[in-house]
């Protein structure tokens, strides 16, 4: 997810899930045993300061108790490992270098975007992605630069979770995956397909790919230092903040409302009563 690197509140789900956009994400474990959900896990209130005992069951989040615990765990990783590392990285690496690295890894997502454009019956978009990959891999110095953008071939954010959404598969319950972060049943399952479609340099040693993955994650996180800090500041309940932002963002991506040109629909809320003034 989250190829669109425009700094955004929506992408703050990356705060705890920057890893999710890396290609070789492991198939998440919790999907297999969601039945263990709310009944077995005591609701925890430590993370948010909100007592859960009387908390309403959010229809989209039946496993909230478990999710909050995993979210808290992920946030600890972020606070004590990832964020400090990213801060150091940001201090050392000039902005253009960070952007170049992020362009490079973004370029490697070509097969995922291409395949999912095809799955969603968007031949024109698929062709554009092909052109984009060709231009950026060659003139763009193996993807470090983004000259394709100047030609009107903007980066696209597509993944198999979105494809399933376009096909009408419902998101299913919200799910926080250990280490990877915010997701839902549909998107978590779809990660496996994107992994299969991704460029996996099998001829490279494991530590090379693992190292590249770490660079990708740290670099991505370093580009959202301010946004994440601000979001944590703004949220009264950071867990719900991320859950809601993830839900809204995914819905927008599936409807392709995120393109930055003005021909796409925008501002559409799936909840048509959002703007009804209460009496």
């Amino acid at each position: 997810m989250g190829r669109s690197l425009c700094a955004s509140l929506a992408l703050l789900s990356l705060a705890t899930a920057p890893v999710a956009r890396a290609a070789d994400a492991p198939v998440p474990g919790p999907v297999a045993e969601p039945g263990a959900g709310p009944a077995l896990v005591e609701p925890s209130e430590a993370e948010s300061g909100v007592p859960d005992s009387t908390a309403p069951a959010n229809p989209n989040d039946p496993w909230e108790g478990m999710n909050r615990k995993i979210f808290w765990f992920n946030d600890q990783i972020d606070v004590y490992v990832l964020e400090p590392t990213a801060r150091g990285w940001n201090w050392v690496m000039p902005q253009p270098v960070q952007r170049g690295i992020s362009n490079f890894f973004g370029n490697l997502r070509f097969p995922i975007v291409f395949v999912n454009d095809a799955f969603q019956a968007k031949p024109l978009q698929a062709l554009k992605e092909l052109g984009r990959f060709a231009v950026n891999t060659t003139i763009g110095a193996v993807g470090i630069l983004d000259p394709a953008r100047e030609l009107g071939l903007d980066q696209q954010d597509e993944d198999f979770g979105q494809t399933l959404g376009v096909w009408g598969v419902p998101a299913g319950p919200y799910l926080v995956i250990p280490v990877l972060g915010a997701s839902n049943c549909r998107d978590a399952g779809a990660l496996a397909v994107d992994t299969a479609a991704s460029i996996s340099p099998w001829y490279l040693e494991f530590f090379v790919t693992a190292g590249a993955r770490i660079v990708d994650v740290v670099n991505t996180r370093s580009r959202f230092l301010r946004e994440v800090a601000e979001a944590k500041e703004a949220a009264l309940d950071y867990y719900t903040f991320v859950r809601n932002a993830y839900e809204q963002r995914r819905a927008a991506l599936i409807e392709d409302r995120t393109s930055h040109d003005d021909t796409t629909p925008y501002g559409v809320q799936t909840d048509e009563h959002l703007y009804d003034v209460p009496q």
Binding site: L9, A10, R243, N244, Q248, L253, R257, T258, L274, Y275
Partner: peptide, 12 residues
């Protein structure tokens, strides 16, 4: 970025 401030705070 397609995330409504009203909807987000409402959820919280």
């Amino acid at each position: 970025e397609q995330v409504s401030l009203v909807a987000n705070f409402r959820a919280q």
